[in-house]
């Protein structure tokens, strides 16, 4: 009888995810990598959305550097962010890494701010709900933009570094690590779900922006490519 009682208590703890949740409250600043699957539900499965459905987004963070990599059928693209870049003209580098004509943009701090302008006035609210994502017990938050579009974020409560916060301003108001986030438009939705998280050593080469074979373009906030002055390295 006693054994049964102990087992019941143990089972209830596990149900709450305590047994499964890794014991961390502060995310390491040295090495973090998270891979998200991107699932898209559109009105039909024969549209252009299918070329992005099943894509993968990977975040690599090491000290003051972050790399965000996006790979889909349609295109591959990366953002190389350096929180304390020695060269202020390269706070962030956006590189299109697929197709015949690959290019990259160098962003200054002000350009980076412009790039993420829609999140400046974003409001983050919290709800009493939770789910488990790859063993991490996650709480619910809602990021609402100025135009009232919303993003549901399931996050694992933990302290993030300033580098991580600056690299993804979308989650600036989230007190933890986003493990899943969703955008809904009626029946249509885009869901980013973490499928793998690692704290293993990340090679520094991962954070090296591509050099050869890429046309360097000048980022002119508010202007299209036509107006950009093309630079070559």
């Amino acid at each position: 009888m006693q054994n049964f009682f102990l087992l019941t208590i143990l089972f209830s703890f596990c149900r709450q995810g305590i047994c499964q949740t890794p014991a961390i409250d502060t995310l390491p600043v040295t090495n973090i990598s998270i891979t998200y699957n991107i699932n898209i539900t559109s009105k039909n499965n024969h549209g252009i959305a299918e070329t992005y459905n099943g894509a993968v987004k990977t975040l690599y963070a090491k000290n003051e550097r972050v790399k965000l990599r996006f790979v889909s059928l349609m295109r591959s693209q990366s953002i190389y962010y350096n929180y304390h870049a020695a060269d202020t003209n390269a706070t962030a580098i956006i590189a299109k890494e697929s197709g015949k004509q690959k290019y990259k943009f160098r962003l200054t701090p002000s350009a980076w701010q412009f790039y993420n302008a829609k999140y400046e006035d974003a409001v983050t609210t919290f709800e009493n709900d939770s789910i488990s994502v790859i063993g991490y017990s996650c709480k619910k938050a809602i990021v609402t933009l100025k135009d009232q579009t919303q993003l549901i974020v399931w996050f694992f409560p933990a302290t993030r570094s300033e580098t991580l916060i600056a690299a993804e301003p979308m989650f600036a108001g989230i007190p933890g690590l986003p493990m899943q986030y969703e955008l809904h438009e009626g029946k249509k939705m885009i869901v980013y779900t973490a499928k793998e998280i690692s704290f293993q050593e990340i090679p520094s080469a991962i954070f090296q922006a591509p050099m050869k074979g890429y046309v360097t373009k000048k980022f002119m906030p508010g202007k299209s490519v036509k107006d950009d002055i093309e630079e070559t390295e």
Binding site: G47, A49, M74, R75, I79, M170
Partner: peptide, 29 residues
């Protein structure tokens, strides 16, 4: 046509980020 549309949206507008859910939704929905 899809390839052209993708280039028109993301290549010509560098402020648009395909890994951003809001920008991606704007393009595909």
């Amino acid at each position: 046509r899809w390839k052209k549309a993708d280039a028109n949206f993301f290549d010509k507008n560098p402020a648009k980020n395909p890994m951003d859910p809001f920008d991606l939704a704007e393009f595909i929905f």
